[in-house]
Design a protein around this nucleic acid. Structure first.
Lengths: 225, 225
DNA sequence: ACCTGAACACCGTTCAAGT
DNA sequence: ACCTGAACACCGTTCAAGT
């Protein structure tokens, strides 16, 4: 038994060479992030999962911040925005549906995006698509950028709510049921929250439609090309 | 000199009685938060600023999480939403302008709101106002709640961008100037970002108008009371 | 070049002790 | 009841040492 332990040690000492790489670290960090949340992702825990000493990571990653930026960047870079087909409304819809889908596929990165100091340049891809589409709708560039920020804050904010499990004392249905909300003080909240689970997808589509309808009514100060 | 140090010690030992209270801790935490950011707010640093040992705080606060919840709650509870006057559009505008103003007045709490596990019940006040106003506009309760989430994610997301100093690699103007954006790949971003500082207030008002215009066009499935 | 082990400077928090 | 001092279990990171 001691012998096998020694063999194990030898193996552990021989194999680690070549077993580590920046890419392997980032993908492991991503799965750990999505499985256990941003709180559980530490250098020591991550190193454990990779069967390595914490310091080994620093050969491939400058710091924890660099690690997190790298993880966020890999996800954001890989998002595939449908860039053609349909009118400007369809293009915008497709763009933010893709963004939402990516966030839901990798829920762990959403809080990182919200608190990130710097994001990769590919973060401007959906902005490019949106501004381009809105120019075709005859909307001035500045307003188009404003519309983009409206759409992106809405989209990310919405998935952020959804990911947190919706239990965080922000869910009106839950709050009404637990008696946290005095019904006489918030009658409309109480009425609207009577009932079943919240349909996040429907809520997202509703918001998208409202914004697009509102943009349609915006004064066209720009000749469409 | 040693004598004065001793006197100082005696003073420090005599005065602390009655000097500490939950309220004093929360207000000091709030100012520290707004002055130096959420990162700088630790139990040890906060205790230093209060002239006390870190453990003294635990007599008035259950944990760091409890402390942060308390700080967020005091700000959210104090927001004054204008609840009357004008049509439903004006009421909604006033509601979210007040929310935005509060966030800008206490910028330190915005990241805490975004990452909070639980928020005080008064967080449902703007929701009550919005849903109530939208019912008058003839919009069904479920859609009214959806509209509220559209507005709140937009409002908070917008101030979150603004508070971060806008330098975080998300500012297109900055990114274009630093050459992070290849102009040929993002022509519309480049065009829209040529120029001066970003007007956050105007961007917020634009978003508000777009959403309200979009809600106006929404099918009225509900008789207005 | 890549990995290890020990150590440093930080956290939030517990616990026994003082008044 | 309220505050202190020492200590515990954690962090991210540095540094010298091994191969």
């Amino acid at each position: 038994m001691q012998k096998s332990a020694t063999q194990h040690r030898k193996r552990r000492k021989a194999v680690p060479r070549r077993t580590l790489s920046r890419e392997r670290i980032l993908t492991e960090a991503l799965t750990l992030l999505d499985k256990e949340g941003a709180r559980a992702l530490g250098m020591r825990r991550l190193a454990d999962h990779l069967g390595v000493t914490p310091m080994a990571l620093y050969n491939h990653v400058r710091s924890k911040q660099d690690l997190l930026q790298g993880v966020v960047a890999t996800v954001i870079d890989r998002i595939d925005y449908p860039d053609e087909g349909g009118d400007w409304r369809d293009r915008i819809r497709g763009c933010f549906r893709a963004m939402r889908a990516a966030c839901l596929a990798y829920p762990g990165i959403v809080p990182l995006i919200e608190s990130a100091d710097v994001l990769p340049a590919s973060i401007f891809r959906p902005m490019e698509i949106t501004v381009s589409a809105l120019r075709k709708a005859g909307i001035a560039p500045t307003d188009a950028v404003r519309a983009y920020y409206l759409l992106v804050t809405f989209t990310v904010g919405q998935v952020s709510y959804q990911i947190r499990g919706w239990g965080r004392g922000v869910d009106p249905v839950d709050a009404v049921q637990r008696g946290r909300i005095p019904t006489e003080k918030f009658p409309n909240v109480a009425v609207a929250s009577s009932g079943r689970d919240w349909d996040f997808a429907a809520s997202f589509e509703f918001g998208l439609s409202v914004v697009l309808a509102g943009l349609e009514r915006q004064p066209k100060r720009w000749p469409s090309p």
